[in-house]
């Protein structure tokens, strides 16, 4: 059992990290043409108009919640004199709402993908693997948030979060994770699978978030001489 725990929470995270980084670099190097949202809005817009934003914005809040919950140690919130009960209520309300939105949005999108023939036809093999994993991760995460709050017996900030931070100092705290309830372990393990799939599935489009648009001049000029696809276009303000 102990060896399994070491393999799962001490070794696997690093393998996933290597796969995630190397896979993304490989994808960017060799398949830039494949980096796209693969939008199906051309075929169906009404359901997407609801499901798309609800899912994506929900997910953005979920990610923000993970950043706060995983990276900010309990000692910091204590030093800020933020009572644990307030923190927990906050995490439950905000996290639960974001999780519910993401799950509901994904539900709409999956229903649309199954029921609209034109959209269904665009589903790739990768999608068929990815969507069940994504849906299970989301549901397991929502379960840990809601059930964890209902029973109140496990403080993930003293367990899972400690393990997560320990990964980055290259000293994985395997027991911290090994003693977590099964729901947390399940969510974390599937989460790792998600990161392993990331570079090889449509999830890569998250890296394409076009934040540069906010600071770019509207009109982009590029010289014919510039070799295609390398470097940013020469922007000329207008």
């Amino acid at each position: 059992m102990k060896h399994l725990q070491i393999a799962l929470w001490g070794v696997l995270p690093y393998l996933v990290l290597v796969l995630f980084v190397a896979g993304s670099a490989w994808r960017y190097r060799y398949d830039r043409f494949g980096l796209t949202t693969r939008s199906t809005q051309l075929h169906e817009s009404r359901l997407l108009g609801v499901g798309g934003p609800v899912f994506h914005f929900g997910l953005l809040f979920v990610v923000a919640g993970h950043v706060v919950g995983m990276l900010v140690p309990e000692s910091v919130t204590n030093a800020l004199r933020l009572p644990e009960s307030v923190y927990r209520e906050n995490a439950l309300v905000a996290g639960g709402a974001a999780g519910l939105a993401a799950v509901a949005g994904l539900g709409i999108l999956l229903w649309r993908r199954l029921r609209v023939p034109a959209v269904r036809r665009t589903t790739s093999r990768g999608d068929r693997l990815l969507y069940p994993v994504l849906a299970t991760v989301l549901l397991a995460g929502l379960w840990t948030t809601l059930a964890g709050a209902a029973t109140g017996s496990y403080d993930y900030r003293l367990g899972v979060s400690v393990w997560f931070r320990s990964l980055f100092v290259l000293d994985p705290d395997v027991p911290a994770m090994a003693h977590a309830p099964f729901a947390f372990q399940f969510h974390t393990a599937l989460g790792m699978l998600l990161f392993a799939l990331w570079p090889f599935s449509r999830l890569v489009h998250a890296f394409a978030a076009p934040l540069g648009y906010l600071v770019r001049p509207y009109i982009v000029y590029r010289s014919r001489g510039a070799s295609a696809g390398v470097g940013a276009g020469r922007g000329v303000a207008r």
Binding site: R216, Y218, Y221, S223, A232, R234
Partner: peptide
């Protein structure tokens, strides 16, 4: 269209 592209993928060629 160039102005609307969030990725900066659309461009106007300087030469022509």
């Amino acid at each position: 269209c160039v102005a609307a592209c969030p990725s900066g993928a659309l461009y106007k060629r300087v030469e022509d």
